[in-house]
Every structure is written in C-alpha cells, then in structure tokens.
C-alpha cells in the first residue's frame, strides 16, 4: 500500500516543552488514527503534516513532498482542528463558500462543492444561519464541510468526535467511513480508543511525544479493556440516567461531580458505548457531554510505556 505521510526522526519543541520526540512512522492510505492522551503530541504531529508548524529536527513528507508552504499539496489536503473558533459573523454557506474560494474553486465548481459539502455534513437546511447560533455538533460538522469543499485526497481531523452528543458522534463516524469508501485517505486523532477503533483499522499510539506502537490495535485494545474505564457524562436528568444505567452489571460505580455531571466507571466500555445511546434515545435524555476522562487512558499509556521499557531492557 502506498505511503501517504512519512515522518522521519521528527522532533518538535516549544520552549522547554518537547511536544514530539524523535518520531518515525509511515502512514499508509485509508483511515489512520493517532491515539494518545492529552499532551501526547497528536495535534502537533497533525500540524506538522499539513505545514502549519515545521519540525525542529527530522523530516515530514506528504505524498513525497515537504508540506511547508506547499501550494499544490494544500489543494489535496482538508483539515479540521479541534481547537479554534469560527468566523461567527458568517453564515454556514458563506463560510464554506469563502473557504472554497480560498482553495481556488470558482463558479460552477464552487457552487457544486459548497452544496456537496453542506449536504454531506447535513447542514444544507441550516446554511443561511449565522455560525454564532450553531450548536457544538453543528460547528464540528461545518468545520468538516469547509475541509472537504475542495474535494481533497486526504482529510485530517483533530479530535473530530470530542465532546459531541451521541447523534452527532454517529453521524461524523459514518461520514468518516464513507470518506474511505470513496477511496480517499483520512488521518484522525483521538484520546478515546473506541472512537478510533470504530472507524480506523490502523493506529499510531503516541505518549509524551513518543511513538509507543503502530499498526494493529487489537492487542492494545485488550490491554485497555482489562482496566476500568472512567467516562464523564453531563446530562439533563442525571438521577433518572443513573437509575437506568445501574441496571447493567458492567457498570462498576457512578459518582456525581455536580448537579448534572457524573463519572461512570465500567469494566466493559464497549457495552457501555452500545447501551448509552439506546438509553438516551429511549428515555429522551439530553446529553451535553459524554467522553472518556483522561486519567483512565493515561494510566494505560503509562502501563504501556513501562512495558515497552521492560521489553527493551
């Protein structure tokens, strides 16, 4: 399979903080997920891949070319960053159209591109609304629209599912899978294994700026599943939700953080992620946030780091 991205001994630091440390890996076509807790160097690596920042050491190539200030390469890449605002004064269509124009699209191609991108993100009906009034899920989807308006070959998504409600989460996951079906490539980052696993077959496991593992995720998944997971949920009726979720024996405990937020501990996250949307849909709960807390994943990464050290000794 062809290599789309190559990172060779890449290091990047900001002041005294080393964000990426001597990272070497090849990313092949299809969907690849960068997995790691916050501060693992995922976003920095993605930024180096699309030329927003340059490595201090090493070399990054995309389709064999240096991405820094590379005009032709940018036409082939679409990017969505987790952080960052939108041009809130624009309408949805205005935003996607402007980004299409900035990508060099004109007249008919631009009209078609904008319509396609808005329809794919299911925002065509909301295209005339100001971005300021968009919900979190809609904002994430419009970011995807602007990234695909010029029909790029590679789509780079930084934490695309972070903090989304289950419906938007599923929608974007489907969108990612459809992207691959079109024969295109996608690189995404996440700190939730299940998010990556749901769409990607290959992963790059990062921790503290270093590469821990690359390739199949099955073995790592098993390790992670052996450990209890903690998931934060912010919901409109927390007490009713707890009553429902405690019916299942894979739930170890539930701790209230405040009046509408709680932490659920489970030994089987896969089952939790299957049951959770069903409960929400059946009972009509409104979920403001659902996501794994960093601590649990970080513990696994620490464990893996130690294991790597032991085997290399």
């Amino acid at each position: 399979m062809r290599t789309i991205v190559r990172l060779e001994n890449v290091s990047k630091w900001f002041g005294e903080v080393v964000a990426v440390n001597n990272l070497t890996c090849d990313l092949k076509g299809g969907i690849t997920g960068f997995l790691g807790p916050n501060g693992a160097g995922k976003t920095t690596t993605l930024k180096m891949i699309n030329g927003i920042i340059a490595p201090n050491l090493g070399r990054v190539t995309v389709f064999g070319e240096d991405p820094w200030d590379n005009m032709e390469l940018r036409k082939k890449i679409g990017v969505v960053f987790e952080m960052g605002n939108l041009y809130d004064w624009m309408t949805g269509e205005d935003f996607v159209r402007t980004m299409g124009r900035l990508s060099g699209l004109r007249s008919e191609d631009l009209d078609k591109g904008v319509e396609r991108a808005l329809k794919i993100a299911n925002l065509y009906e909301a295209k005339n609304r100001r971005l300021k009034g968009y919900s979190h899920g809609m904002r994430q989807k419009i970011k995807i629209s602007q990234a695909i308006v010029h029909d790029p070959q590679i789509l780079i998504l930084d934490e695309p599912l972070g903090g989304l409600d289950p419906i938007s989460r599923r929608y974007i996951s489907d969108l990612i899978r459809d992207w691959e079906k079109e024969g295109k490539d996608l690189i995404m980052s996440s700190h939730v294994l299940h998010e990556v696993e749901a769409v990607a077959k290959k992963i790059v496991l990062l921790f503290q700026g270093k590469l821990l593992a690359q390739g199949s995720i099955e073995a790592i998944r098993r390790l992670i599943d052996e450990r209890p997971h903690t998931i934060k949920v912010k919901i409109d009726k927390p007490k009713e939700f707890v009553k429902e979720i405690l019916e299942y024996d894979f739930i170890s405990s539930v701790v209230f953080l405040d009046k509408d937020s709680l932490i659920v501990r489970t030994k089987n996250p896969e089952e939790f992620y299957t049951v959770f949307p069903q409960i929400v849909a059946n009972k009509g709960f409104e979920v403001e946030f659902m996501g794994v807390t960093d601590e649990s994943l970080e513990a696994v990464f620490k464990y893996l780091t130690m294991r790597t050290k032991r085997t290399s000794m």
């Binding site: 940018r74 960053f81 960052g84 605002n85 900035l102």
Partner: peptide, 15 residues
Amino acid sequence: NDKTIYYILTRPIHR
C-alpha cells in the same frame, strides 16, 4: 488568538 488563522494557513495561499 482565535485560531481562525488555521483556515487560511491550510489553503493554497503563500503565508
């Protein structure tokens, strides 16, 4: 500061 500059930096326009 708003990081909206990323939308421009990732387009085929010289910095």
